[in-house]
């Protein structure tokens, strides 16, 4: 019983990590960019959302509806203004550029929002739970998991079945060849980053509702996203989702063993996967 509950909690936690990981998997898969600002963008969006709630009186769902387009706009701008200049076969320039931006962003957030921890009121939904068989499951984590599943399925469908998805897959297979058949790589990239950061609008809202956020929290979110993506296999969408579940379950089970061991258990599983299967569990053969 104890363990089943742990696994269920882990899967629910994995739902949040999946929302972090999706955009990272997308950006890495298409552009070979590891966006170090990924976690800071979650925090930035969360703080923006909390401010909207505080000053404009928005409820959590209105905050979500606002943060997704804001995230998409930030992503588009980030790609156009910065990442399109450093993207290429060598992943190092984008790593260095986003590392610098991450530090700048953390400092800027500190100036605007101070170091206080804040959270978003969910109007009671945080406390609500439903009984499924012998288990009590929180309503909010369940919503998070459902959103994560729909986002993953939706993104996968976009990649498979739409004109944009085909152009993106073409660009990730061979960007020069894609340009030779009329695809504009820079605009494909800008849209990819817009989608990636737009999804963080979900992650930011839910993170701010279930817990607290402060300007320096970004690197932790980045690590979870990164671990989920590596466990699942770089660049694969459902791989990132499953990686997030594995990470969530590892942490939850670790937490059951010893409350101090939870996060560490996730890191250990991540390192074990790196050692045994560095290409990730679900990586398609290239």
């Amino acid at each position: 019983m104890h363990w089943i509950e742990g696994i269920v909690q882990g899967i629910l936690l994995g739902g949040l990590y999946a929302q972090y990981a999706l955009g990272m998997a997308l950006m890495f898969g298409v552009m070979k960019i590891v966006n170090v600002t990924h976690g800071d963008l979650v925090i930035l969006l969360a703080l923006i959302g909390i401010s909207f709630a505080d000053f404009a009186g928005l409820g959590p769902w209105s905050v979500l509806a606002t943060l997704v387009p804001i995230g998409a706009a930030i992503g588009w701008l980030l790609q156009r203004a910065m990442l399109n200049r450093v993207v290429g076969n060598d992943p190092l320039p984008s790593l260095i550029a986003t590392f610098g931006l991450s530090i700048a962003l953390q400092n800027a957030m500190l100036v605007v929002w101070s170091a206080d921890t804040r959270s978003l009121s969910g109007g009671g939904i945080q406390q609500a739970s439903i009984e499924i068989g012998p288990l009590f499951v929180g309503v909010l984590p369940l919503i998070v998991l459902i959103c994560a599943t729909l986002l993953t399925g939706g993104l996968d469908a976009v990649l498979r079945f739409t004109r944009y998805g085909r152009s993106l897959r073409a660009a990730s297979a061979d960007v020069e060849a894609a340009a030779m058949v009329g695809v504009n790589p820079k605009s494909v990239y800008a849209t990819a980053t817009a989608i990636a950061v737009g999804i963080l609008g979900f992650a930011a809202t839910f993170q701010a509702m279930r817990s607290t956020v402060a300007p320096a929290d970004g690197p932790f979110q980045l690590i979870y996203a990164f671990e989920a993506v590596i466990i699942g296999g770089l660049g694969s969408i459902w791989g990132a989702f499953t990686g997030a579940m594995i990470l969530g379950v590892s942490q939850a089970i670790g937490f059951r063993i010893n409350p101090g061991f939870g996060i560490l258990a996730g890191h250990i599983v991540f390192l074990a996967v790196l050692a045994i299967r560095p290409q990730g569990i679900f990586q398609r053969k290239s």
Partner: peptide, 28 residues
């Protein structure tokens, strides 16, 4: 102006139909 590049440069991981479709979806 279009090119059939040296070394073919097809989009791996995509079907014949998808390769062709990317081109027709971005054609002149």
């Amino acid at each position: 102006v279009a090119i059939v590049p040296e070394g073919r440069r097809l989009f791996a991981g995509m079907t014949v139909e998808e390769n062709l479709r990317v081109a027709s979806e971005h054609a002149a």
